[in-house]
Design a protein around this nucleic acid. Sequence first.
DNA 1: TTTAAGTGCTCGCTACGTAC
DNA 2: GTACGTAGCGAGCACTTAAA
Length: 298
Amino acid sequence: MHITNNLRAIDLNLLVVLDALLHERHLTRAAARLPMSQPAMSHALARLRVLLGDPLFHRTRGGLRPTAHALALEAPLRDVLAQVRRLLAGAVFEPAASRRAFRLAMSDYGARVALPPLLRHMRREAPGIDLEISYASRSGMIAGVADGQLDLALSVFGETPADIRRAVLFLEDFVCAADAAQGVPSTLQAYLARPHVLVAAGPDQRAAEVDAALARLGHARRVAVRLPHWTAAPAMLAGTDLLLTVARRTVDPVPPGLAVGAAPFPIAPLAFEMIWHERADADAGLAWLRAQLGAALA
DNA sequence: TTTAAGTGCTCGCTACGTAC
DNA sequence: GTACGTAGCGAGCACTTAAA
């Protein structure tokens, strides 16, 4: 071990390099992650090897295999870097004085549910903070959070990468909505006999929660209309035989001329979540925003 | 043979020492 | 305090080496 207590003699950037290498297990991808060139990353690894007195990684066909010493460093290194990021980001965030802008992504349903209570609070407590809201599919939101284009994304998520953090904001039931004259079906057979409106933001949401529940029962519904807007869907029902199965808050209060009732088969509650990248754990401002969202939607 | 890491060389930047 | 010269370091290009 060549490290001494003389921190001035150590390039602390090398710790960031080591973290990237441990994360990617691949020199070229680690270089792209920082970003720097592959040779620069190779030189940095060489300096790390001298600094730590260990090969750290063995070359393999698919990239780099960490040594036991490198693996032992992984968790403490991540903790140290998180502390440094917190230190540099400023441990204290003052919402009343902040002039920051946060970039969020959510569906129109998410905006309808989350933004009103959030903005009421923010306009009082943090009038200098701006929000930039965009719309994307679930996979687009995950990609945006991962590459730093988004601070936070709100939706219903399936699998997410390991470096994406997530927190459930609320659970919600599904209900059926239809033209009041047509009524809401009380049996599964009547439900399946009707044409349906499907709300899905993108191709990655083809297997939505409702279809998954039907599939578990061995059934499928006929989707007559597919659209990406939750809040526009109820207005399409009036004067038709179309049936819409949506999260309860989408039709609360019940629009005039519509009937709303429970679905005639069990559907797992929808978990509405927010996601952010692990690098933002140290961001006191974003932590504050997450806390406000959690409080507003609890 | 393909893919990815390692190496040699060069260039540019920065820190440091020195002179004024 | 400022200007200048110098050494050292890091990054990138081009190429080589190693693993599968």
